[in-house]
Design a protein around this nucleic acid. Structure first.
Lengths: 244, 244
DNA sequence: GTAAAGCCTCACGCTACGTGAGGATCAAGG
DNA sequence: CCTTGATCCTCACGTAGCGTGAGGCTTTAC
Protein backbone atom coordinates (compact mmCIF):
# COMPACT_ATOMS: atom_id res chain seq x y z
CA UNK A 1 0.00 0.00 0.00
CA UNK A 2 2.05 2.89 -1.29
CA UNK A 3 1.18 6.33 -0.03
CA UNK A 4 -0.07 9.12 -2.23
CA UNK A 5 0.68 10.95 -4.41
CA UNK A 6 -0.02 8.33 -7.03
CA UNK A 7 0.64 8.21 -10.72
CA UNK A 8 -2.27 7.81 -13.05
CA UNK A 9 -1.86 4.06 -13.57
CA UNK A 10 -1.71 3.42 -9.86
CA UNK A 11 -4.80 5.50 -9.23
CA UNK A 12 -6.59 3.76 -12.07
CA UNK A 13 -5.82 0.33 -10.65
CA UNK A 14 -7.00 1.28 -7.18
CA UNK A 15 -10.22 2.92 -8.26
CA UNK A 16 -11.19 0.67 -11.12
CA UNK A 17 -11.19 3.52 -13.60
CA UNK A 18 -9.33 3.46 -16.89
CA UNK A 19 -6.30 5.64 -17.43
CA UNK A 20 -8.07 7.16 -20.40
CA UNK A 21 -11.01 8.18 -18.25
CA UNK A 22 -8.69 9.94 -15.81
CA UNK A 23 -7.05 11.71 -18.74
CA UNK A 24 -10.50 12.70 -19.90
CA UNK A 25 -11.47 14.06 -16.51
CA UNK A 26 -8.28 16.08 -16.57
CA UNK A 27 -9.04 17.39 -20.05
CA UNK A 28 -12.50 18.62 -19.12
CA UNK A 29 -11.29 20.06 -15.85
CA UNK A 30 -13.27 17.66 -13.70
CA UNK A 31 -10.28 16.18 -11.91
CA UNK A 32 -6.94 17.87 -12.46
CA UNK A 33 -4.10 16.36 -10.46
CA UNK A 34 -2.59 18.66 -7.90
CA UNK A 35 0.93 17.90 -9.04
CA UNK A 36 2.97 16.95 -12.04
CA UNK A 37 6.49 15.56 -12.08
CA UNK A 38 9.02 17.74 -13.90
CA UNK A 39 8.57 15.41 -16.87
CA UNK A 40 4.84 15.95 -16.97
CA UNK A 41 3.59 12.77 -15.30
CA UNK A 42 0.36 13.33 -13.37
CA UNK A 43 0.51 12.99 -9.59
CA UNK A 44 -2.76 12.69 -7.67
CA UNK A 45 -2.68 13.62 -3.99
CA UNK A 46 -5.09 12.70 -1.23
CA UNK A 47 -7.59 15.44 -2.01
CA UNK A 48 -7.62 14.40 -5.68
CA UNK A 49 -8.36 10.85 -4.60
CA UNK A 50 -11.23 11.97 -2.43
CA UNK A 51 -12.62 14.05 -5.24
CA UNK A 52 -12.42 11.06 -7.54
CA UNK A 53 -14.40 9.00 -5.04
CA UNK A 54 -17.05 11.67 -5.01
CA UNK A 55 -17.09 11.69 -8.79
CA UNK A 56 -17.53 7.93 -8.81
CA UNK A 57 -20.36 8.12 -6.32
CA UNK A 58 -22.24 10.71 -8.31
CA UNK A 59 -21.60 8.89 -11.57
CA UNK A 60 -23.06 5.74 -10.02
CA UNK A 61 -26.30 7.65 -9.71
CA UNK A 62 -26.17 8.33 -13.44
CA UNK A 63 -25.31 12.00 -13.15
CA UNK A 64 -23.51 13.46 -16.15
CA UNK A 65 -19.90 14.59 -15.94
CA UNK A 66 -21.05 18.12 -16.58
CA UNK A 67 -23.44 18.12 -13.64
CA UNK A 68 -20.91 16.37 -11.43
CA UNK A 69 -18.51 19.17 -12.21
CA UNK A 70 -21.08 21.83 -11.43
CA UNK A 71 -21.98 20.09 -8.18
CA UNK A 72 -18.42 19.69 -6.96
CA UNK A 73 -17.13 23.04 -8.13
CA UNK A 74 -19.79 25.62 -7.61
CA UNK A 75 -22.23 24.94 -4.82
CA UNK A 76 -24.58 27.11 -6.84
CA UNK A 77 -26.90 24.18 -7.49
CA UNK A 78 -28.56 22.31 -4.66
CA UNK A 79 -27.88 18.56 -4.60
CA UNK A 80 -31.51 17.95 -3.83
CA UNK A 81 -32.64 19.70 -6.99
CA UNK A 82 -30.13 17.84 -9.09
CA UNK A 83 -31.26 14.50 -7.69
CA UNK A 84 -34.93 15.31 -8.16
CA UNK A 85 -34.50 16.50 -11.73
CA UNK A 86 -32.35 13.55 -12.57
CA UNK A 87 -34.85 11.17 -11.07
CA UNK A 88 -37.55 12.76 -13.18
CA UNK A 89 -35.46 12.26 -16.31
CA UNK A 90 -34.84 8.63 -15.41
CA UNK A 91 -38.55 8.08 -14.92
CA UNK A 92 -39.26 9.58 -18.33
CA UNK A 93 -36.74 7.23 -19.86
CA UNK A 94 -38.31 4.28 -18.12
CA UNK A 95 -41.81 5.05 -19.33
CA UNK A 96 -40.53 5.68 -22.85
CA UNK A 97 -38.66 2.40 -22.87
CA UNK A 98 -41.60 0.60 -21.31
CA UNK A 99 -43.87 1.82 -24.09
CA UNK A 100 -41.30 0.70 -26.62
CA UNK A 101 -41.04 -2.72 -25.01
CA UNK A 102 -44.80 -3.04 -25.09
CA UNK A 103 -44.89 -2.22 -28.78
CA UNK A 104 -42.08 -4.62 -29.51
CA UNK A 105 -43.81 -7.38 -27.57
CA UNK A 106 -47.04 -6.78 -29.45
CA UNK A 107 -45.07 -6.80 -32.67
CA UNK A 108 -43.46 -10.11 -31.79
CA UNK A 109 -46.93 -11.51 -31.14
CA UNK A 110 -48.13 -10.40 -34.57
CA UNK A 111 -45.03 -11.88 -36.15
CA UNK A 112 -45.81 -15.22 -34.56
CA UNK A 113 -49.43 -15.05 -35.59
CA UNK A 114 -48.81 -14.13 -39.19
CA UNK A 115 -45.74 -16.25 -39.92
CA UNK A 116 -43.97 -13.31 -41.42
CA UNK A 117 -40.55 -13.47 -42.90
CA UNK A 118 -40.24 -10.50 -45.19
CA UNK A 119 -39.17 -7.10 -43.99
CA UNK A 120 -41.89 -5.50 -46.10
CA UNK A 121 -44.57 -7.31 -44.15
CA UNK A 122 -42.86 -6.41 -40.91
CA UNK A 123 -43.03 -2.74 -41.80
CA UNK A 124 -46.66 -3.02 -42.82
CA UNK A 125 -47.50 -4.48 -39.44
CA UNK A 126 -45.61 -1.75 -37.63
CA UNK A 127 -47.41 0.83 -39.72
CA UNK A 128 -50.77 -0.74 -38.92
CA UNK A 129 -49.92 -0.84 -35.22
CA UNK A 130 -48.89 2.79 -35.29
CA UNK A 131 -52.08 3.79 -37.03
CA UNK A 132 -54.23 1.85 -34.60
CA UNK A 133 -52.49 3.42 -31.65
CA UNK A 134 -53.74 6.75 -32.89
CA UNK A 135 -57.39 5.67 -32.72
CA UNK A 136 -57.62 3.09 -29.95
CA UNK A 137 -56.84 3.58 -26.32
CA UNK A 138 -54.31 1.43 -24.56
CA UNK A 139 -57.02 -0.67 -22.97
CA UNK A 140 -58.87 -1.16 -26.20
CA UNK A 141 -55.72 -2.42 -27.87
CA UNK A 142 -55.22 -4.88 -25.04
CA UNK A 143 -58.77 -6.16 -25.55
CA UNK A 144 -58.16 -6.58 -29.26
CA UNK A 145 -54.93 -8.48 -28.68
CA UNK A 146 -56.62 -10.75 -26.22
CA UNK A 147 -59.45 -11.47 -28.62
CA UNK A 148 -57.01 -12.09 -31.43
CA UNK A 149 -55.29 -14.88 -29.56
CA UNK A 150 -58.50 -16.33 -28.16
CA UNK A 151 -60.42 -16.68 -31.43
CA UNK A 152 -57.55 -18.22 -33.35
CA UNK A 153 -56.14 -17.87 -36.85
CA UNK A 154 -58.66 -19.94 -38.75
CA UNK A 155 -61.60 -17.98 -37.45
CA UNK A 156 -59.85 -14.70 -38.22
CA UNK A 157 -59.35 -15.80 -41.80
CA UNK A 158 -63.01 -16.82 -42.03
CA UNK A 159 -64.10 -13.43 -40.73
CA UNK A 160 -61.93 -11.65 -43.26
CA UNK A 161 -63.47 -13.71 -46.04
CA UNK A 162 -66.93 -12.87 -44.84
CA UNK A 163 -66.14 -9.15 -44.80
CA UNK A 164 -64.74 -9.46 -48.30
CA UNK A 165 -68.13 -10.75 -49.38
CA UNK A 166 -70.29 -8.56 -47.17
CA UNK A 167 -68.84 -5.16 -48.05
CA UNK A 168 -69.29 -5.45 -51.81
CA UNK A 169 -72.80 -6.79 -51.25
CA UNK A 170 -73.62 -3.79 -49.11
CA UNK A 171 -72.07 -1.50 -51.70
CA UNK A 172 -74.26 -2.99 -54.43
CA UNK A 173 -77.34 -2.41 -52.30
CA UNK A 174 -76.35 1.21 -51.76
CA UNK A 175 -75.56 1.72 -55.43
CA UNK A 176 -78.96 0.29 -56.31
CA UNK A 177 -80.57 2.65 -53.77
CA UNK A 178 -82.24 -0.28 -52.03
CA UNK A 179 -84.28 0.72 -49.00
CA UNK A 180 -82.19 0.04 -45.85
CA UNK A 181 -85.33 -1.36 -44.27
CA UNK A 182 -85.72 -4.02 -46.94
CA UNK A 183 -85.37 -7.61 -45.71
CA UNK A 184 -82.29 -8.32 -47.84
CA UNK A 185 -80.37 -5.32 -46.53
CA UNK A 186 -81.49 -5.97 -42.98
CA UNK A 187 -80.18 -9.52 -43.33
CA UNK A 188 -76.85 -8.14 -44.46
CA UNK A 189 -76.88 -5.70 -41.53
CA UNK A 190 -77.53 -8.58 -39.16
CA UNK A 191 -74.43 -10.41 -40.40
CA UNK A 192 -72.53 -7.10 -40.23
CA UNK A 193 -73.51 -6.56 -36.63
CA UNK A 194 -72.54 -10.11 -35.71
CA UNK A 195 -69.07 -9.60 -37.15
CA UNK A 196 -68.66 -6.26 -35.44
CA UNK A 197 -69.77 -7.66 -32.09
CA UNK A 198 -67.37 -10.55 -32.41
CA UNK A 199 -64.54 -8.14 -33.17
CA UNK A 200 -65.30 -5.61 -30.48
CA UNK A 201 -66.31 -8.08 -27.83
CA UNK A 202 -69.33 -5.89 -27.19
CA UNK A 203 -67.25 -2.80 -26.44
CA UNK A 204 -69.03 0.03 -28.21
CA UNK A 205 -66.01 2.31 -27.85
CA UNK A 206 -64.01 -0.01 -30.06
CA UNK A 207 -66.70 0.06 -32.72
CA UNK A 208 -66.69 3.83 -32.71
CA UNK A 209 -62.93 3.95 -32.88
CA UNK A 210 -62.98 1.68 -35.90
CA UNK A 211 -65.41 4.00 -37.65
CA UNK A 212 -63.32 7.05 -36.84
CA UNK A 213 -60.25 5.27 -38.10
CA UNK A 214 -61.86 4.33 -41.40
CA UNK A 215 -63.10 7.87 -41.75
CA UNK A 216 -59.64 9.43 -41.36
CA UNK A 217 -57.52 6.76 -42.95
CA UNK A 218 -59.96 5.61 -45.63
CA UNK A 219 -57.75 6.25 -48.61
CA UNK A 220 -54.64 4.72 -47.08
CA UNK A 221 -56.50 1.65 -45.85
CA UNK A 222 -58.20 1.11 -49.17
CA UNK A 223 -54.84 0.67 -50.85
CA UNK A 224 -53.76 -1.97 -48.43
CA UNK A 225 -56.89 -3.93 -47.57
CA UNK A 226 -58.77 -3.80 -50.82
CA UNK A 227 -62.41 -3.00 -50.12
CA UNK A 228 -63.16 -0.99 -47.02
CA UNK A 229 -66.36 0.55 -45.74
CA UNK A 230 -66.91 4.23 -46.45
CA UNK A 231 -68.55 6.66 -44.05
CA UNK A 232 -71.61 6.59 -46.28
CA UNK A 233 -71.76 2.86 -45.88
CA UNK A 234 -71.57 3.16 -42.11
CA UNK A 235 -74.57 5.49 -42.24
CA UNK A 236 -76.47 3.12 -44.52
CA UNK A 237 -75.75 0.14 -42.29
CA UNK A 238 -76.77 2.20 -39.29
CA UNK A 239 -80.17 2.85 -40.79
CA UNK A 240 -80.60 -0.80 -41.70
CA UNK A 241 -79.73 -1.86 -38.15
CA UNK A 242 -82.73 0.02 -36.82
CA UNK A 243 -84.87 -2.65 -38.42
CA UNK A 244 -83.11 -5.68 -37.04
CA UNK B 1 -50.90 17.21 -53.95
CA UNK B 2 -47.99 17.25 -56.33
CA UNK B 3 -46.89 13.97 -57.78
CA UNK B 4 -43.46 12.47 -57.20
CA UNK B 5 -40.58 12.82 -57.74
CA UNK B 6 -40.19 15.26 -54.89
CA UNK B 7 -37.35 17.47 -53.82
CA UNK B 8 -35.92 17.02 -50.40
CA UNK B 9 -37.83 19.89 -48.78
CA UNK B 10 -41.12 18.62 -50.11
CA UNK B 11 -40.44 15.10 -48.89
CA UNK B 12 -39.37 16.43 -45.53
CA UNK B 13 -42.58 18.39 -45.11
CA UNK B 14 -44.75 15.44 -46.06
CA UNK B 15 -43.01 12.91 -43.86
CA UNK B 16 -42.23 15.06 -40.88
CA UNK B 17 -38.51 14.43 -41.20
CA UNK B 18 -35.89 17.16 -41.25
CA UNK B 19 -34.00 17.95 -44.41
CA UNK B 20 -30.79 17.28 -42.53
CA UNK B 21 -31.95 13.81 -41.56
CA UNK B 22 -32.66 12.99 -45.21
CA UNK B 23 -29.22 14.28 -46.12
CA UNK B 24 -27.82 12.07 -43.39
CA UNK B 25 -29.66 9.00 -44.67
CA UNK B 26 -28.23 9.76 -48.10
CA UNK B 27 -24.72 10.07 -46.69
CA UNK B 28 -24.80 6.72 -44.92
CA UNK B 29 -26.44 5.03 -47.89
CA UNK B 30 -29.68 4.31 -46.09
CA UNK B 31 -31.90 6.26 -48.48
CA UNK B 32 -30.27 7.50 -51.66
CA UNK B 33 -32.68 9.28 -54.00
CA UNK B 34 -33.20 7.56 -57.31
CA UNK B 35 -32.65 10.77 -59.25
CA UNK B 36 -30.77 14.00 -59.18
CA UNK B 37 -31.42 17.09 -61.28
CA UNK B 38 -28.51 18.11 -63.52
CA UNK B 39 -27.66 20.70 -60.85
CA UNK B 40 -27.44 18.12 -58.13
CA UNK B 41 -30.80 18.55 -56.38
CA UNK B 42 -32.09 15.31 -54.90
CA UNK B 43 -35.26 13.85 -56.41
CA UNK B 44 -37.10 11.12 -54.50
CA UNK B 45 -39.39 8.84 -56.51
CA UNK B 46 -42.22 6.62 -55.33
CA UNK B 47 -39.99 3.73 -54.32
CA UNK B 48 -37.79 6.08 -52.30
CA UNK B 49 -40.86 7.33 -50.50
CA UNK B 50 -41.97 3.84 -49.67
CA UNK B 51 -38.52 3.00 -48.39
CA UNK B 52 -38.59 6.08 -46.22
CA UNK B 53 -41.89 4.96 -44.73
CA UNK B 54 -40.34 1.63 -43.90
CA UNK B 55 -37.40 3.38 -42.34
CA UNK B 56 -39.75 5.47 -40.23
CA UNK B 57 -41.66 2.40 -39.11
CA UNK B 58 -38.56 0.57 -38.02
CA UNK B 59 -37.13 3.65 -36.34
CA UNK B 60 -40.36 3.99 -34.38
CA UNK B 61 -39.52 0.63 -32.85
CA UNK B 62 -36.19 2.05 -31.75
CA UNK B 63 -34.08 0.14 -34.24
CA UNK B 64 -30.75 1.74 -35.09
CA UNK B 65 -30.07 3.18 -38.53
CA UNK B 66 -27.43 0.55 -39.04
CA UNK B 67 -29.80 -2.30 -38.36
CA UNK B 68 -32.52 -0.68 -40.43
CA UNK B 69 -30.09 -0.57 -43.31
CA UNK B 70 -29.13 -4.18 -42.86
CA UNK B 71 -32.77 -5.20 -42.67
CA UNK B 72 -33.85 -3.32 -45.76
CA UNK B 73 -30.80 -4.07 -47.88
CA UNK B 74 -29.69 -7.58 -47.19
CA UNK B 75 -32.38 -9.99 -46.13
CA UNK B 76 -29.52 -11.84 -44.48
CA UNK B 77 -30.92 -11.10 -41.02
CA UNK B 78 -34.32 -12.32 -40.00
CA UNK B 79 -36.71 -9.60 -38.80
CA UNK B 80 -37.81 -11.84 -36.00
CA UNK B 81 -34.31 -12.13 -34.62
CA UNK B 82 -33.75 -8.42 -34.86
CA UNK B 83 -36.96 -7.71 -32.99
CA UNK B 84 -36.21 -10.26 -30.31
CA UNK B 85 -32.69 -9.07 -29.74
CA UNK B 86 -33.81 -5.47 -29.70
CA UNK B 87 -36.54 -6.26 -27.24
CA UNK B 88 -33.99 -7.96 -25.02
CA UNK B 89 -31.80 -4.86 -25.14
CA UNK B 90 -34.73 -2.64 -24.27
CA UNK B 91 -35.60 -4.83 -21.33
CA UNK B 92 -32.04 -4.60 -20.08
CA UNK B 93 -32.22 -0.85 -20.30
CA UNK B 94 -35.47 -0.81 -18.41
CA UNK B 95 -34.16 -2.90 -15.56
CA UNK B 96 -30.98 -0.85 -15.39
CA UNK B 97 -32.96 2.38 -15.30
CA UNK B 98 -35.39 0.94 -12.80
CA UNK B 99 -32.55 0.06 -10.48
CA UNK B 100 -31.18 3.54 -10.90
CA UNK B 101 -34.55 5.10 -10.14
CA UNK B 102 -34.81 2.97 -7.04
CA UNK B 103 -31.42 4.12 -5.83
CA UNK B 104 -32.25 7.73 -6.57
CA UNK B 105 -35.52 7.46 -4.73
CA UNK B 106 -33.80 5.92 -1.72
CA UNK B 107 -31.22 8.68 -1.91
CA UNK B 108 -33.92 11.35 -1.93
CA UNK B 109 -35.40 9.72 1.15
CA UNK B 110 -32.08 9.88 2.96
CA UNK B 111 -31.67 13.49 1.92
CA UNK B 112 -35.01 14.33 3.45
CA UNK B 113 -34.21 12.43 6.61
CA UNK B 114 -30.79 13.92 7.18
CA UNK B 115 -31.44 17.51 6.11
CA UNK B 116 -28.39 17.49 3.91
CA UNK B 117 -27.21 20.45 1.97
CA UNK B 118 -23.57 19.87 1.18
CA UNK B 119 -22.34 17.87 -1.74
CA UNK B 120 -19.80 16.14 0.48
CA UNK B 121 -22.53 14.68 2.63
CA UNK B 122 -24.45 13.69 -0.45
CA UNK B 123 -21.48 11.71 -1.71
CA UNK B 124 -20.97 10.08 1.67
CA UNK B 125 -24.55 8.87 1.63
CA UNK B 126 -24.21 7.52 -1.88
CA UNK B 127 -21.04 5.75 -0.86
CA UNK B 128 -22.73 4.23 2.15
CA UNK B 129 -25.68 3.10 0.03
CA UNK B 130 -23.33 1.53 -2.49
CA UNK B 131 -21.42 -0.30 0.21
CA UNK B 132 -24.59 -1.60 1.82
CA UNK B 133 -25.89 -2.85 -1.50
CA UNK B 134 -22.88 -5.12 -1.67
CA UNK B 135 -23.77 -6.87 1.59
CA UNK B 136 -27.55 -6.72 1.91
CA UNK B 137 -30.08 -8.19 -0.42
CA UNK B 138 -32.72 -6.07 -2.04
CA UNK B 139 -35.35 -7.25 0.43
CA UNK B 140 -33.15 -6.63 3.41
CA UNK B 141 -32.52 -3.06 2.29
CA UNK B 142 -36.26 -2.53 1.97
CA UNK B 143 -36.73 -3.79 5.53
CA UNK B 144 -34.03 -1.44 6.79
CA UNK B 145 -35.58 1.55 4.99
CA UNK B 146 -38.95 0.71 6.43
CA UNK B 147 -37.56 0.43 9.94
CA UNK B 148 -35.66 3.68 9.51
CA UNK B 149 -38.81 5.65 8.83
CA UNK B 150 -40.87 3.83 11.42
CA UNK B 151 -38.56 4.32 14.41
CA UNK B 152 -37.90 8.00 13.79
CA UNK B 153 -34.89 10.26 13.95
CA UNK B 154 -34.73 10.81 17.69
CA UNK B 155 -34.63 7.11 18.44
CA UNK B 156 -31.96 6.57 15.79
CA UNK B 157 -29.80 9.20 17.44
CA UNK B 158 -30.33 7.57 20.81
CA UNK B 159 -29.31 4.19 19.45
CA UNK B 160 -26.17 5.65 17.95
CA UNK B 161 -25.28 7.20 21.29
CA UNK B 162 -25.79 3.89 23.00
CA UNK B 163 -23.53 2.10 20.54
CA UNK B 164 -20.94 4.79 21.09
CA UNK B 165 -20.95 3.88 24.74
CA UNK B 166 -21.39 0.13 24.40
CA UNK B 167 -18.59 -0.60 21.96
CA UNK B 168 -15.80 1.01 23.99
CA UNK B 169 -17.14 -0.72 27.11
CA UNK B 170 -16.99 -4.07 25.37
CA UNK B 171 -13.51 -3.26 24.10
CA UNK B 172 -12.36 -2.52 27.64
CA UNK B 173 -13.75 -5.85 28.81
CA UNK B 174 -11.90 -7.65 26.02
CA UNK B 175 -8.67 -5.78 26.70
CA UNK B 176 -8.96 -6.73 30.36
CA UNK B 177 -9.52 -10.36 29.36
CA UNK B 178 -12.72 -10.45 31.38
CA UNK B 179 -14.54 -13.79 31.16
CA UNK B 180 -17.40 -13.46 28.65
CA UNK B 181 -19.57 -15.38 31.08
CA UNK B 182 -19.10 -12.77 33.80
CA UNK B 183 -22.27 -10.92 34.82
CA UNK B 184 -20.97 -7.51 33.70
CA UNK B 185 -20.13 -8.68 30.21
CA UNK B 186 -23.36 -10.65 29.90
CA UNK B 187 -25.22 -7.50 30.84
CA UNK B 188 -23.42 -5.65 28.07
CA UNK B 189 -24.23 -8.48 25.67
CA UNK B 190 -27.88 -8.22 26.64
CA UNK B 191 -27.94 -4.53 25.70
CA UNK B 192 -26.01 -5.38 22.54
CA UNK B 193 -28.56 -8.00 21.52
CA UNK B 194 -31.43 -5.61 22.17
CA UNK B 195 -29.90 -3.02 19.86
CA UNK B 196 -29.20 -5.56 17.17
CA UNK B 197 -32.71 -6.97 17.36
CA UNK B 198 -34.18 -3.51 17.10
CA UNK B 199 -32.05 -2.80 14.06
CA UNK B 200 -32.64 -6.06 12.25
CA UNK B 201 -36.27 -6.42 13.14
CA UNK B 202 -35.51 -10.00 14.16
CA UNK B 203 -34.14 -10.91 10.71
CA UNK B 204 -31.06 -12.97 11.40
CA UNK B 205 -29.89 -12.60 7.81
CA UNK B 206 -29.51 -8.87 8.35
CA UNK B 207 -27.43 -9.42 11.46
CA UNK B 208 -25.11 -11.74 9.59
CA UNK B 209 -24.83 -9.29 6.71
CA UNK B 210 -23.84 -6.55 9.12
CA UNK B 211 -21.10 -8.72 10.55
CA UNK B 212 -19.80 -9.62 7.09
CA UNK B 213 -19.84 -5.97 6.17
CA UNK B 214 -17.84 -4.91 9.22
CA UNK B 215 -15.44 -7.71 8.54
CA UNK B 216 -14.71 -6.61 4.97
CA UNK B 217 -15.05 -2.88 5.33
CA UNK B 218 -13.73 -2.51 8.85
CA UNK B 219 -10.93 -0.11 8.07
CA UNK B 220 -13.01 2.13 5.81
CA UNK B 221 -15.91 2.23 8.25
CA UNK B 222 -13.66 2.99 11.18
CA UNK B 223 -12.54 6.21 9.53
CA UNK B 224 -16.06 7.40 9.03
CA UNK B 225 -17.97 6.14 12.02
CA UNK B 226 -15.36 6.36 14.75
CA UNK B 227 -15.49 3.20 16.83
CA UNK B 228 -16.73 0.07 15.14
CA UNK B 229 -16.83 -3.53 16.30
CA UNK B 230 -14.04 -5.81 15.12
CA UNK B 231 -14.47 -9.46 14.15
CA UNK B 232 -12.80 -10.37 17.44
CA UNK B 233 -15.41 -8.35 19.27
CA UNK B 234 -18.19 -10.17 17.44
CA UNK B 235 -16.71 -13.46 18.60
CA UNK B 236 -16.41 -12.20 22.17
CA UNK B 237 -19.98 -10.95 22.20
CA UNK B 238 -21.12 -14.25 20.71
CA UNK B 239 -19.58 -16.16 23.58
CA UNK B 240 -21.13 -13.78 26.11
CA UNK B 241 -24.57 -14.22 24.55
CA UNK B 242 -24.52 -17.93 25.32
CA UNK B 243 -24.95 -16.98 28.96
CA UNK B 244 -27.89 -14.62 28.57
C1' DG C 1 22.93 -0.82 -19.97
C1' DT C 2 18.92 -2.39 -21.86
C1' DA C 3 14.35 -3.86 -22.27
C1' DA C 4 9.75 -3.72 -20.65
C1' DA C 5 6.34 -1.12 -18.64
C1' DG C 6 4.29 3.15 -18.02
C1' DC C 7 3.68 7.83 -19.15
C1' DC C 8 2.83 11.74 -22.38
C1' DT C 9 0.07 14.21 -26.19
C1' DC C 10 -2.61 14.12 -30.28
C1' DA C 11 -6.51 12.53 -32.76
C1' DC C 12 -10.12 9.64 -34.86
C1' DG C 13 -14.38 6.78 -33.80
C1' DC C 14 -19.03 5.91 -32.01
C1' DT C 15 -25.23 7.73 -32.53
C1' DA C 16 -28.17 10.47 -35.23
C1' DC C 17 -28.54 14.05 -36.54
C1' DG C 18 -28.68 20.00 -35.21
C1' DT C 19 -26.85 24.04 -36.62
C1' DG C 20 -24.67 27.24 -39.11
C1' DA C 21 -21.34 28.89 -43.29
C1' DG C 22 -20.82 30.00 -47.81
C1' DG C 23 -22.45 29.55 -52.25
C1' DA C 24 -25.48 27.77 -56.34
C1' DT C 25 -30.32 27.25 -58.11
C1' DC C 26 -35.15 27.85 -58.56
C1' DA C 27 -39.80 30.26 -58.86
C1' DA C 28 -42.26 34.33 -59.11
C1' DG C 29 -42.85 39.21 -59.74
C1' DG C 30 -41.56 43.79 -61.88
C1' DC D 1 -34.24 40.29 -68.20
C1' DC D 2 -33.32 41.09 -63.50
C1' DT D 3 -34.08 40.81 -58.78
C1' DT D 4 -35.41 38.64 -54.63
C1' DG D 5 -36.60 35.26 -51.41
C1' DA D 6 -36.98 30.41 -50.86
C1' DT D 7 -34.74 26.27 -51.49
C1' DC D 8 -30.96 23.57 -52.60
C1' DC D 9 -26.00 22.06 -52.43
C1' DT D 10 -21.61 20.62 -49.84
C1' DC D 11 -18.52 20.95 -46.03
C1' DA D 12 -17.70 20.66 -41.20
C1' DC D 13 -18.04 21.20 -36.21
C1' DG D 14 -20.64 19.76 -31.90
C1' DT D 15 -22.89 16.33 -28.94
C1' DA D 16 -21.25 12.18 -24.08
C1' DG D 17 -17.87 9.62 -22.42
C1' DC D 18 -14.61 7.66 -23.14
C1' DG D 19 -12.00 3.31 -26.35
C1' DT D 20 -8.31 2.57 -29.07
C1' DG D 21 -4.35 3.14 -31.33
C1' DA D 22 0.13 6.07 -32.97
C1' DG D 23 4.43 7.88 -32.04
C1' DG D 24 7.59 9.22 -28.74
C1' DC D 25 9.63 10.12 -23.78
C1' DT D 26 10.58 8.16 -18.76
C1' DT D 27 10.86 5.17 -15.26
C1' DT D 28 11.82 0.70 -13.39
C1' DA D 29 13.79 -3.77 -12.96
C1' DC D 30 17.22 -7.06 -14.08
Amino acid sequence: MKAPPWKVGELAKRTGMSVRALHHYDEIGLLQPALRTPTGHRLYDASDIQRLQQIQSLRLMGISLDEVKRLLDGAAVSPRQVIDMHLARVHEQITAHARLAERLTALALHLDAAAIGSVDDLCLIIEAMTTMEKYFTHDQLAVLRERQTSVGDTRIQAVQDEWAELIPAMQRAMDGAVDPASPDVVALARRWKALVDEFTGGDSGIGKAVMTMYEHEGAALKEKLGNVPTPAMFAYVGRAMKHL
